[in-house]
Amino acid sequence: MEGAGLSPRQLAHRVGVSVKQVERWLGDADLTPHARNRADACRALGVDEEMLWPKAVQERVKTGGDRELVHSYPYRSACPSTVWTELVETAESELFFAGYTNYFFWTQVPHFAATVRRKAEAGCRVRFLLGDPDGEVTRQRETIEDVALSVSTRIGITLEHLERLGPLEGLEARFSAPLDAINHVSLSVFRFDHDALVTPHLARLVGHDSPLLHLRRYGDGGMFERFAEHAEELWERGEPVPASSGSA
C-alpha cells in the first residue's frame, strides 16, 4: 500500500469494499478475501496475488475433492469471527442458516440483524432452518448437553430476533420436520453463495466445541454440493414457523 501510495480508505474505494474490510485484511494473516476482491486489490496495488495471499494461490492447484476444502478447524470457535462476518457481508444471492439453533450469529457477527434485513431487501434469499424448541429431539439434546443456555433457549433467541425483523420479503424460517430432527441436530450447514461452513456435532459437545469445515464450490458433485443437498432436503420437508413463534 505504501509503495502504491494508497491509504486503507483509498484501497477500499478502489476495490469497492468498506474500510473495515481492508483493516481486517491487514490484521488477520489467515483471512483470504473473495477472488474478485483479491483481483481488484492486486490490480490497485500493482502486485501479484501470490505476494499478498499465497494460500489462495496454493488452493487453486489442489485436485479432486480436496480443492473444495478452504480450511478446517478442530473447533468451530477456532474459526476467526472475521471469516463469518466477511461471508455474511459478501453473499449476494443465498444466505442459508441451517444450524439447529443459529443463535450465535446474533451475538457474534456484528450488526447481524441489520445485515439480514439489508440483504433480504437487496434481493438475497435468506433462510433459517431451526429445530423445534418443543420437539422431542430438542429435549433429548438438552439432557445430553446439560448446559445453562439450553437448546430451546438458543432457538428462542433466534426466533425473537426474527420476530423483531417482522415480515420481510426474501426472509424465510422453518422448523425441521420431526423425523428429520435427529439429522438436523447432528449436522449444521451454513451457506453463503458458493461458500459453506459445515459443523458435524460430536457426541455431547455443543456447536462451538465441534469441528468446522470451510468449503467452496468448484463444480458438480463435490463436497459443497453434498452438504448443500442435505440442507435443502431438510428445508423441503420443513414446517413453517408459526407466527406466534416469531415467524418472518
Rank of each mutant, 00 (worst) to 15 (best):
Pro110Arg: 09
Glu68Ala: 07
Ser186Lys: 13
Tyr73Val: 04
Glu233Val: 08
Leu202Thr: 13
Leu234Glu: 02
Glu50Gly: 15
Val147Tyr: 12
Gly166His: 10
Arg24His: 07
Arg164Ala: 10
Leu168Ala: 10
His71Leu: 02
Phe96Glu: 02
Thr153Asn: 04
Ser150Arg: 14
Pro54His: 09
Arg67Ala: 12
Thr63Pro: 00
Cys79Lys: 06
Glu68Cys: 07
Gly219Asp: 02
Val22Leu: 01
Arg125Ile: 05
Ser210Leu: 04
Glu239Ile: 15
His111Arg: 15
Trp25Gly: 07
Arg164Pro: 00
Asn102Val: 04
Glu86Tyr: 06
Gly222Ser: 03
Ala177Trp: 04
Val61His: 09
Met1Ile: 07
Gly65Tyr: 02
Ala203Phe: 09
Glu2Gly: 02
Ala35Trp: 06
Lys20Tyr: 04
Ser77Asn: 06
Asn183Gln: 12
His71Tyr: 00
Arg14Leu: 05
Pro167Arg: 15
Val88Cys: 10
Pro74Leu: 12
Ala98Arg: 07
Asp40Val: 10
Glu2Trp: 00
Lys119Ala: 09
Leu212Glu: 12
Thr138Ser: 11
Ala113Leu: 08
Asp209Ser: 11
Tyr100Glu: 01
Ala196Lys: 01
Ala78His: 15
Met51Leu: 14
Gly156Lys: 08
Arg125Met: 05
Ala120Met: 05
Glu142Ile: 02
Glu59Asn: 12
Ala122Asp: 14
Asp209Glu: 14
Glu233Ser: 08
Ser210Thr: 12
Ser210Arg: 06
Leu168Pro: 13
Ala91Val: 06
Gly131Ser: 14
Val206His: 13
Lys55Asp: 14
Pro242Met: 04
Leu6His: 13
Arg141Leu: 05
Ala29Asn: 04
Arg226Leu: 10
Ala91Leu: 03
Pro167His: 11
Glu236Arg: 04
Phe175Ile: 03
Gln58Asn: 05
Arg216Glu: 07
Gly123Tyr: 08
Val61Gln: 12
Ala203Ile: 03
Val137Met: 11
Leu149Asp: 12
Glu236Tyr: 02
Glu232Lys: 14
Tyr100His: 08
Ala203Leu: 08
Leu31Ile: 05
Arg76Phe: 03
Thr158Gln: 06
Leu202Lys: 05
Gly221Met: 01
Pro242Leu: 03
Ala44Arg: 14
Arg164Trp: 01
Pro211Arg: 07
Leu69Cys: 12
Val147Thr: 14
Glu229Ala: 13
